Amino acid sequence: MRIGGLRFGFYIAGLLAASLCFAKPYVPASDQQVLERLPFQASDPLARELSRLRIELQQDPHNLPAAIKKLANRYYGLVVEEGDPPYLDFA
């Protein structure tokens, strides 16, 4: 009886492993879909600063190098301050 239970366990484990092999990654429906939000609150000074920098980037599209540099540098600073690598993606 014990050997049969062991075989059944291997059978179930094999089925689970096989089903994972055919799993497809999640692909958002559009580029506008939000996948993750930063853990900031609206009252957080850092959130206000990042929001201001993003607004500056949107308002002055002809000065992209300066605006992008400011925003990217701030995100890089967050990586150094908090050690959170996803900020590199935002930069």
Rank of each mutant, 00 (worst) to 15 (best):
S51I: 13
R48E: 03
V34L: 01
Y87H: 12
R37E: 06
L15E: 03
L6C: 03
S19D: 01
K24E: 05
C21G: 12
S19W: 13
P39V: 04
P86V: 04
V79I: 07
F90Y: 11
A47F: 11
V79A: 04
E82A: 13
G4Y: 15
A67L: 12
Q33W: 03
A17V: 09
F22Q: 11
N63A: 07
I55H: 15
P85C: 03
R74M: 05
G14D: 01
P65A: 07
A67F: 12
G5M: 09
P28H: 08
A47R: 00
E49I: 11
A72W: 07
R48L: 14
I3C: 05
V34N: 00
A13R: 00
R48Q: 06
Y11Q: 10
V27P: 02
L64T: 11
Y75P: 00
P45L: 05
L6A: 08
Q41I: 15
D89E: 13
L88A: 09
R74A: 13
P45I: 02
L15H: 01
Q32H: 11
V34C: 00
V79E: 04
E36W: 03
A13Y: 00
V80W: 14
I12F: 10
S43Y: 07
K69I: 01
P61Y: 08
A18P: 11
N63S: 12
A29V: 10
R74H: 04
S43R: 01
Y75K: 00
L57F: 12
L35Y: 03
A72L: 04
V27Q: 14
F22D: 09
E36I: 08
Y87Q: 12
L38S: 02
V27M: 10
H62D: 15
P25K: 13
